[in-house]
Amino acid sequence: MPTLRSTHWSLVLAAGRRASPESERALAELCQTYWPPVHDYIRRQTNDLHLAQDLTQEFFARLLEKNALAAADPQRGCFRAFLLTSVMNFLANARDRAQAQKRGGGRKILTLDFAAHDSYWNIEPSHELTPEKLFDRRWALLVLEAVFARLREEYAGKNELFERLKDFLTGELSASLAEIGAKLDMSEGAIKTAAHRLRKRFRALLRAEVAQTLADDEPIDEEIRALFDALAS
């Protein structure tokens, strides 16, 4: 759906070297939503919860610094790809720094043992995934979480309706609409309309959320499909 307002990510991209307050806010908002995949990625690579937290903080602090984006290629693609590349680079640099410090100062600030087997951290059930896949998978779930958060906000006064109708978003039919309607004291026509509306709204919010991470002209469907593929196990 073409909108006059540019997406968050396109604002950031357009700002480029000269970051405006607007583009900075857009980037901050994006990071606010999509930091967990970065954290997971780092944690997966370092096997240390506290270290991962520190590194994640540092990563975002650098990212949000003024002109941090200027060095990057303008053809970065979507925000998801950009963030993954950035965090990969960041970790590689962090390792270099750690080794340089080990060699030079002997002061052991960081104990980054990237080669070690990741036996410490296997809480995550899908640990057979590569860190990159894990990143995308977490991202896909976050998109959906963000959409549901907004959807729940909109349905704040109609909690029961939302609870009963949400199954219809996937096409899963646990009970017929007529039954649900009877429970909620609504006519079949009214409940059908409500289900249709919820689905439509969910779809719009999902597309809007995905669009925020894309440049203006990037196809939303392609990104949704990529997220869909990321969830294939």
Binding site: P125, S126, A140, L141, V143, L144, E145, F148, K166, D167, L169, T170, G171, E172, R199, F202, R203, L206, R207, V210, I220, D221, I224, R225, L227, F228, L231, A232, S233
Partner: peptide, 23 residues
């Protein structure tokens, strides 16, 4: 497909995403 335990609202995330496609 298997529904991951950490999916929002306990719904199948793949079907949810599919619902967002333009077509």
């Amino acid at each position: 497909t298997e529904i991951p335990a950490d999916t929002p609202e306990g719904l199948c995330p793949r079907c949810l995403l599919r619902a967002g496609l333009a077509s």
